[in-house]
Amino acid sequence: MSGNGNAAATAEENSPKMRVIRVGTRKSQLARIQTDSVVATLKASYPGLQFEIIAMSTTGDKILDTALSKIGEKSLFTKELEHALEKNEVDLVVHSLKDLPTVLPPGFTIGAICKRENPHDAVVFHPKFVGKTLETLPEKSVVGTSSLRRAAQLQRKFPHLEFRSIRGNLNTRLRKLDEQQEFSAIILATAGLQRMGWHNRVGQILHPEECMYAVGQGALGVEVRAKDQDILDLVGVLHDPETLLRCIAERAFLRHLEGGCSVPVAVHTAMKDGQLYLTGGVWSLDGSDSIQETMQATIHVPAQHEDGPEDDPQLVGITARNIPRGPQLAAQNLGISLANLLLSKGAKNILDVARQLNDAH
């Protein structure tokens, strides 16, 4: 009898209710805020589980004197976190989706994509230029951005401005803007500013005609071990179906173009009346040469937790077992079709030249 009692006690200790789920994140304040929001949602869904947040620095956090596009290494903000995932030191990792490459290392998958916040870019102005827009900034004003995508589009749109690289986390960039006289304004992701509670610093939100956004911008991705079915089931509740389908289309477009950090590629997606609209573009580094096109596809946005595919093969690095396969494939095909259209119009040449120029500098 006593033996059975011990077995029952052991089973209770090993039951999922007692389990601590370890969540990996970057150390920056924004990353911690984003991770806290994901953990809060998981806690609400699984009140019996405990969650421990483990923060670590990544290569991208450490190399702050070089433009991201020049470092010449993929997975700048993800490699150390993936290493911890691989060694079973954490069970899942919360990322900004735009930091996750469209091809993940073997053994990993994006197990959830959370509801997207505003994906557009924002302009934050130096205190002396508050009330201005990019259009009304004085001639030769210097605007800071760490992104080739932003610089290429904005140089084309605002030729009277000069664009220079600015690195560091959000706090560091804002301090550089406010305390030094080098920059009249800087460009940042609206979602990051909003998550930090800095709505009052948003001086201008850039519309798609001015600057399309990065693939996955404004959404959070939760990376897990691809074979860890328990954790895949656990994080599945975080999937937002519309965000998922938009981001599958965007990531398929980028992957098929073979774009990345070192080339200016941008997108804009919208879901309306059962249609998914995808606009994508590529630019030369100075913005003088560009190709942009829009395509659409009829896609039914499923309700969360309709029964999805059981075999769960990944699409552009994403596993969404609780979302039907048909809409996911339709979104992926839309991204591939748009990429093929741009490639047929000469996108590869623009991107190759951009890559060579970026590598040469």
Rank of each mutant, 00 (worst) to 15 (best):
P324E: 03
A270F: 14
L220W: 05
Q292G: 08
E250G: 02
V23I: 04
P241A: 07
I53K: 11
L161H: 11
K79I: 09
E209P: 15
T109H: 10
A44H: 10
L42T: 04
A354M: 12
K27A: 13
E258P: 06
V38N: 04
F158Y: 13
E250P: 01
G107C: 12
A152P: 07
V90E: 06
G111K: 04
F129V: 09
R321T: 10
V38M: 07
Q328K: 13
T41N: 09
A226W: 15
C211E: 01
G24I: 04
L81D: 04
T269V: 00
L177A: 05
D307E: 07
M295H: 03
Q204W: 02
G131R: 10
V222D: 02
F158G: 08
P309T: 07
R195P: 04
H300P: 10
V94D: 03
G280L: 03
F77Q: 03
Q194Y: 05
D273A: 02
I63L: 13
A122F: 03
P264Q: 10
V23H: 04
A31F: 00
L338H: 00
V265R: 00
A31Y: 00
P241T: 07
H95K: 04
Q332W: 13
A191T: 08
R149H: 06
Q50W: 00
G218Q: 02
G216C: 15
K98T: 01
A31N: 00
A67K: 15
R201A: 02
D91V: 04
R325S: 09
A191F: 03
R225T: 07
I166S: 07
R325T: 09
Q356Y: 05
S141N: 14
R149S: 02
A303V: 04
T102Y: 14
Q34S: 10
E135A: 14
P106E: 14
G168W: 03
R321Q: 06
L81P: 06
T190I: 15
V142D: 08
P159V: 14
Q304I: 04
D91W: 02
L338Y: 00
V93D: 07
P119I: 02
G287Y: 05
R225L: 09
E117P: 00
A189W: 00
G107F: 13
F108Q: 15
E139Q: 15
A84S: 10
A270M: 15
K348C: 01
S147F: 02
L343G: 10
E223M: 00
A214P: 08
Q217C: 03
D178L: 10
V142L: 11
L244C: 12
H268R: 15
I110W: 02
S146N: 12
Y277M: 11
A112D: 04
R32G: 11
L134Q: 01
H305T: 00
S147G: 00
G60I: 01
D352F: 14
M212Y: 02
G346A: 05
W198D: 08
G280V: 08
A67S: 01
V215R: 04
S284L: 00
S344V: 07
A303S: 10
A360R: 05
E80L: 06
S284V: 00
G317C: 14
L234H: 07
D352G: 01
I71V: 13
Q292F: 08
R195G: 05
T41S: 12
A152I: 11
G72Q: 04
G218S: 01
L81E: 03
F108P: 13
R246H: 05
P106N: 13
L278M: 06
R26W: 00
D230A: 05
K98D: 00
R355A: 03
